[in-house]
């Protein structure tokens, strides 16, 4: 119910939410709504501009760009979701323990902070090589390892302020064990900041996955992906810019929608910002 109220109050967030639902629906129905098979070659129709038969045009193999964009959305959302889950599964417990126990916190946060000194894309590239090259699971692990520390940071700082709350003190006073406090009082109250951070992780990670695919080290080339499409079409940019234009626009729209939604939920959690009309 909170989400519905929030969406009604903020027009931009509502637009973002509807966009995400639309993309998700099209993605789920991909085999039924895409006009062609994403891999169907048609060499006589290669590099055709956007038109009635091919709304977004065709690429250098005569494949329909719209169908590839739709199927590309599938893998993009699948990877974004898996990477966000990876970040939560590893980031939440580590962050909670680091925030609740001082000694763990000192050690873990030093390592986490230092590990963020490596630029995200370089770390992901290096991890891809170590994991043995292209592959969907490898991308999830590599980009997940890059984004989990950011989740740890968020969880850590929220836990630090939560553990000072009176109800935590009260639970300690009545003899609740640390495990009980952590699970029933801390983790439960962390859900909102974790969801917000996961939304941002989703947005950043699909951008990073596109970059990996663009550089030719992401998922295997036979799976249509937005980054991969842009990379393959680089040599044709002057004759057929639409092959790069459309996947980029859809990537930007997806990232923007998740950022807007994350912003709205975050501002809503912050009482100082709650009543401020942004847009």
């Amino acid at each position: 119910m909170d989400l519905i109220n929030l969406l009604l109050k903020r027009k931009m967030a509502l637009v973002a939410f509807i966009t995400i639902i639309l993309i998700l629906t099209v993605t789920a129905l991909a085999p039924f709504v895409s006009p062609y098979k994403p891999g169907a070659l048609n060499l006589s129709d290669r590099l055709k501009g956007p038109g009635l038969t091919h709304l977004f045009g065709t690429d250098h193999f005569g494949r329909d760009v719209l169908s590839r964009v739709i199927f590309g959305a599938r893998i993009t959302f699948l990877l974004g979701l898996s990477i966000s889950l990876f970040a939560v599964v590893f980031g939440l417990p580590i962050g909670v323990l680091a925030g609740y126990f001082d000694l763990v916190g000192t050690v873990v946060m030093r390592v986490i902070d230092a590990s963020m000194a490596f630029p995200a894309i370089m770390m992901a590239l290096a991890l891809m090589t170590i994991l043995g090259g292209r592959g969907i699971v490898n991308v999830i692990i590599a980009v997940g390892i890059v984004w989990a520390p950011r989740m740890v940071r968020t969880v850590y700082s929220s836990t630090l302020s939560l553990r000072e709350e009176t109800y935590i003190e009260a639970s300690k006073a009545i003899g609740a064990s640390s495990t009980r406090i952590l699970i029933y009082h801390i983790v439960i109250n962390l859900l909102s900041p974790v969801i917000v951070q996961a939304t941002f992780t989703f947005a950043f990670s699909i951008m990073e996955v596109a970059a990996l695919n663009f550089l030719g080290v992401g998922i295997p080339p036979f799976i249509p992906s937005w980054g991969g499409m842009m990379s393959e079409a680089r040599n044709y940019i002057q004759v057929a810019p639409w092959i790069i234009l459309f996947p980029g626009i859809f990537l930007a729209i997806s990232v923007l929608s998740f950022n807007l939604l994350g912003d709205a939920v975050r501002d809503n959690l912050d009482p100082k910002l709650r009543n401020e009309e942004l847009a």
Partner: peptide
């Protein structure tokens, strides 16, 4: 601007 991949903007 914050949602556009820099490599895509570069290509455009």
């Amino acid at each position: 601007g914050a949602s556009v991949p820099s490599f895509w903007l570069g290509l455009m």
